[in-house]
């Protein structure tokens, strides 16, 4: 899905501020930059909720076999489309598979695709960025134009084309998302790092005669890393939505794989008749995305508290 990516585009360039509902207390004096950011983050209630949601997601993914009540692939054609019950908490699908176990296992695809694709995108962005920086003018221009080209493809359209070439599956989804998000990722990484470098307090620290290493470790690093983390949190959320959208369109992971987009897509035929089929996976994906958005918001606000 391009929505979140889009939000980042102009957002970063024009400093898109957001209000958070938590309360901000002035940071105590004489505390490190790290501590200050952490303190502001933890004081933001939504951010903490987000953090809990994200941790829960990771935990669910890791412990899926322990949490699931059934084999997510086991079919029971004698008990299809059963409403939620004591045995099947979220009901069963058109092939009699346990929906609860499929929702639980679905977290694994979300985590793997979300993290791996953004990691890859950052890697491509960083390598190309480094190349551009190292070789300078011509290479820089060429790379920037290539980035423009990839930037001009709406994420989903680009990803579908790549998947067509590579076939359906988890790896193609990860690669296709990475290929069509690195341009966005690299632009934003670049601008967020640049903006920190130019900030007043860095200039001030320099003027006060602080050593370069001290400036980097105590001032630039914490802020840059927090900015990047904030951005990555958003991007992972975006990637998870994009992955589910691909499956929803029937070009993501294989249909037998327990995955939220797949589940919602196959529930379409039963719209209004068996609504529980799409509701549970929807709740799972919404909580996941909100988790990442809250964390991203929290980190950004922690960096830039003046706009709350």
């Amino acid at each position: 899905m391009t929505e979140l990516a889009k939000s980042q585009g102009p957002g970063a360039a024009t400093a898109e501020p957001a209000a958070a509902t938590g309360t901000a207390e002035p940071a105590p004096a004489r505390i490190t930059q790290w501590g200050e950011i952490r303190h502001r983050f933890m004081a933001n209630r939504l951010a903490v909720v987000g953090l809990v949601l994200v941790l829960l997601l990771f935990l669910t993914a890791a412990l899926a076999p322990l949490i699931a009540t059934h084999d997510p692939y086991a079919q029971d054609l004698g008990n299809t489309l059963a409403s939620p019950s004591g045995d099947h908490w979220f009901g069963t699908d058109a092939l009699g598979r346990d929906q609860f176990s499929r929702v639980i296992y679905g977290s694994r695809i979300a985590v793997v695709v979300g993290l791996a694709s953004i990691f890859l995108a950052c890697l491509i962005g960083l390598v190309l960025g480094a190349l551009a920086g190292y070789f300078g003018k011509t290479v820089d221009t060429v790379i920037m134009r290539i980035a423009d080209i990839f930037f001009a493809f709406p994420l989903l359209i680009g990803a579908i084309v790549i998947i067509l070439v590579m076939g359906r599956g988890v790896m193609p989804v990860i690669l296709s998302l990475a290929i069509f998000s690195w341009a966005t990722v690299s632009r934003l990484l670049r601008s967020s790092i640049l903006s920190v470098r130019e900030m007043d307090y860095v200039t001030a620290a320099k003027a006060l005669g602080a050593s370069t290493s001290r400036i980097i470790i105590r001032h630039i690093m914490p802020n840059s890393i927090a900015a990047v983390m904030s951005f990555i949190a958003f991007s992972v959320g975006t990637a998870i939505v994009a992955e589910a959208s691909l499956s929803y369109l029937g070009v993501g992971v294989s249909p037998e794989v327990p995955e939220w987009g797949n589940m919602i897509s196959s529930a379409r035929d039963f719209m209004g008749v068996k609504d529980f089929l799409w509701m549970y996976p929807s709740v799972a994906i919404v909580l996941t995305v909100l988790g990442f958005v809250f964390v991203g918001d929290g980190l950004r606000d922690a960096l830039d508290p003046k706009l709350r």
């Binding site: 692939y73 079919q75 054609l77 058109a94 092939l95 067509l164 076939g167 359906r168 294989s254 249909p255 037998e256 196959s266």
Partner: peptide, 28 residues
């Protein structure tokens, strides 16, 4: 998508084979 998965599962359950489902757009 649906019935193909059901057939695959029956073959797996009865014969113990590993059925690899491969869904492609028609031309491919």
């Amino acid at each position: 998508e649906e019935w193909v998965q059901a057939v695959a599962k029956q073959i797996e359950d009865v014969l113990g084979l590993k059925v690899k489902l491969n869904g492609l757009p028609f031309k491919e």
